[in-house]
Amino acid sequence: MSDSAVGVVGDPAVGDRLREAGASVVAGTVDSVPQTERVVAVGETAVRAVAVADGDPLVVPVAAGRGVRSVARESAPAAVAGLADARVEAHPLFDIATAGSAVGTAMYDVTAVTAEAARISEYAVETATDVVGQFRADGVTLATAAGSPGYARRIGGPVLAPSGSVGVIAPIAPFQTNPDHWVVSLDGLSVSVERDEATVTLYVDGEAAGTVACHDSVTVQRTGTVRLAVVPESLSRFQ
């Protein structure tokens, strides 16, 4: 393996496996990401932590889901050994704000959903240039390509290959028999709550980020990119 050190976040056991294979390893955590040129991130939470931290490392996702073309834990040494020939896949990051206040950075998805069971609200979605739709539903998910194989897929959205800022808009349990799903640019997109019938909670990459008041908007703006390594050990996002 290369003498260049590789950071490891998310699972010390993977770091031990890399050391046994001859790699120089710098251990880190989701709160303290190593400042190395290459970082192995184990699990979805670790990938996101590395993505939003300072620096621009090449990230090797391990056991982190289809959307980021993970490698299996046992394949991590081979993946790191082959990084010199890796293809780089770029995934966008988005700043999320509500009522004009920043609430987080998304790599995977943003979800607005009614906090009470059996309650629905009404949502309006607009891109920077067009009105997408208005619908009554339990909520709505905006998923990036990295997030598209996750919750958005379970509620009927397609799985996307990375392509700029394109993402999926998927209503959650909409009050209609044949709901639309849209594939649009998420950069500049906004979602507003149009009826004051229930509390709407906002989640950014699965973490609660506050509530959305009636007639307030959630806005999405591209803020950067994370570079992910694709090697022969990387799994398909479509299988």
Rank of each mutant, 00 (worst) to 15 (best):
V183T: 15
V168L: 02
G164S: 07
V184F: 06
V193S: 02
D187E: 10
I172K: 00
F175K: 00
H181Q: 13
V184T: 13
P171T: 07
V183C: 07
F175Q: 12
G188Y: 11
V166W: 10
V193W: 00
A173S: 15
V168Y: 05
S192V: 03
G164T: 09
D180R: 12
A170Y: 06
F175G: 02
V168F: 04
L189S: 11
P179I: 11
F175P: 03
D187L: 08
T177C: 03
V183K: 01
I169Y: 00
W182L: 13
N178I: 12
V191Q: 01
V191M: 08
D180V: 01
I169F: 03
F175S: 12
P179S: 06
W182G: 01
V191F: 05
G167L: 08
V166T: 14
I169E: 03
V184Y: 05
W182S: 14
V191T: 05
H181T: 15
I172N: 09
L186N: 04
G167N: 06
V166H: 04
G188W: 05
S192Y: 00
V168C: 05
V191P: 00
V191N: 00
V191D: 03
A170I: 05
S165G: 08
I169V: 15
L189N: 03
S192L: 05
G188L: 08
I172M: 13
A173M: 12
L186R: 01
V191G: 02
D187F: 09
F175H: 15
T177W: 13
F175L: 15
V183G: 05
W182N: 06
A170R: 01
L189Y: 04
F175A: 13
S192H: 00
I169M: 03
G164H: 06
G167D: 11
Q176H: 08
V183E: 10
P179T: 11
L186P: 07
D180T: 04
Q176K: 02
S192G: 12
L186G: 03
W182C: 03
V191I: 14
S192E: 10
P174S: 10
D187M: 06
W182Y: 15
Q176N: 13
H181A: 09
I169L: 14
N178M: 12
H181D: 01
S190Q: 13
V183I: 14
G164R: 06
S190C: 07
S190E: 15
L186W: 05
V184M: 08
V168G: 02
A173L: 13
L189M: 15
P179E: 11
N178E: 14
S185R: 10
D187W: 06
V168S: 01
D187K: 00
S165I: 03
S165K: 00
V166Y: 10
A170G: 05
I172S: 03
